[in-house]
Simulated assay, not measured.
Amino acid sequence: MGSWRHQARDGGCCGAWLRALACLLLVGAAGSARAAGGVLVVRSQDLPPYAAVDQAFTQSIGQSVTHLTLGGAKNELARALAERPTLVLALGQEAASRVAALRPAAPVLCALVPFPAKIDGRLLPVPMFASPQRQAQALRQAVPSARRVGLVYVPGNSRALADAYARAAETAGLVPVRHEVAGLKDFAGAVRTLVGRVDALWLVPDPSLINAETFKFLVQTSFESKLPLLAYSQAMVKAGALIAMEAGYADMGKRAGATGRRLLGGDAGATPEHPEAALYVNRRSARLLGVDLPDAVRAQAAQVFE
């Protein structure tokens, strides 16, 4: 047995070692606490729209945020969700589908997802488009003579959205004329049946119906039949639609952030609001349609295409 001096030295070394170990354990615990919890953003791809929503959300949420883009390590998403985030934002269809399949305990917001209810009814979607009320008002202001407006949609995809558009049309003093189709093969025929029955066409966003070819057909039909076309993007107006209200990506992120703060604060019933939207107008289309755009509409427009 060593002397008391050796024991003291050993005890001192042991004490120092234990203190160092305790510090390491504390640091490790703190690191785990930082990893566990927090907010997770999952992007389907590294694309500018996702980046814009992500950036605005991150600035708005007021929490530590982890960012993940799919396509990396196979189990990267599962590992990120295993860290028990308190809130998840899924950007895009693939991200929403893969997050929902793993059934995280945290609330899941999603943005830039066309049909979130078809993925999982528990998802909390940030609307991709301007409010139906604002769109209907824009149509009434741009074409005051319009009374009947046509809506073509696939019930399995867009019934809820078509219902909202119809209610907004009625509130704005318009009469909605609805035409359900089974799919793309019936779309052109449905549009043709509305010619002569409506004063304008209001596009219901549905990727299964609206593509480059069908939009070209819509613009041609619009000009030939003098039917103003209410679309939902700046690009569509540039390509020939009369007007559109386009929702901004940054505002989608802000709406997601505002809802996320409420959810994290204990408001389990919080749902995202429609984002702010900008008005776009095509004066050349107006001339071809015989529509005299009011000065007030042109003044409100973020851009007027000539």
Rank of each mutant, 00 (worst) to 15 (best):
Arg159Thr: 04
Thr171Phe: 02
Tyr165Pro: 02
Phe217Cys: 06
Leu124Phe: 06
Lys216Met: 06
Pro116Arg: 07
Val113Trp: 00
Pro228Ser: 11
Ala169Gln: 14
Lys226Thr: 03
Ala166Met: 06
Pro144Trp: 03
Arg122Gly: 15
Pro116Ser: 09
Gly121Cys: 01
Leu218Pro: 03
Arg192Val: 12
Ala169Val: 06
Pro116Tyr: 00
Leu151Gly: 07
Gly121Thr: 01
Ala188His: 13
Gln220His: 13
Pro132Val: 07
Val154Ser: 02
Phe223Leu: 15
Arg122Met: 03
Ala190Cys: 13
Asp199Asn: 15
Thr221Asn: 04
Val149Thr: 07
Pro205Gln: 00
Met236Lys: 07
Pro144Gln: 01
Thr221His: 04
Leu124Glu: 01
Ala117Trp: 02
Phe215Lys: 02
Val198Gln: 06
Gly150Thr: 10
Glu213Asp: 14
Asp206Thr: 02
Thr221Trp: 01
Ser145Asp: 12
Ile119Ser: 12
Ser222Met: 08
Phe129Leu: 13
Ala166Asp: 00
Leu123Phe: 12
Ser225Trp: 05
Leu218His: 01
Pro207Val: 00
Pro125Glu: 00
Glu170Leu: 05
Gly196Thr: 11
Ser158Val: 01
Asp120Pro: 05
Ala138Pro: 11
Pro116Cys: 01
Ser131Glu: 10
Leu209Lys: 00
Gln220Pro: 02
Ala111Arg: 02
Asp120Gln: 00
Asn211Cys: 02
Ala168Asn: 00
Ile243His: 05
Ser225Leu: 08
Gly121Glu: 14
Ala235Ser: 14
Val154Tyr: 03
Arg167Phe: 05
Val191Asp: 00
Pro155His: 02
Val149Lys: 03
Met236Leu: 14
Ser222Ile: 13
Val204Lys: 12
Val126Ser: 12
Val152Arg: 04
Leu161Arg: 03
Ala188Ser: 15
Glu224Tyr: 09
Asp199Ser: 13
Leu112Trp: 13
Val149Ala: 07
Tyr232Phe: 15
Tyr153Val: 02
Gly150Leu: 08
Arg147Thr: 06
Met128Phe: 10
Ala239Pro: 09
Leu194Ala: 01
Val143Phe: 10
Phe223Asp: 14
Arg167Asn: 08
Val181Trp: 11
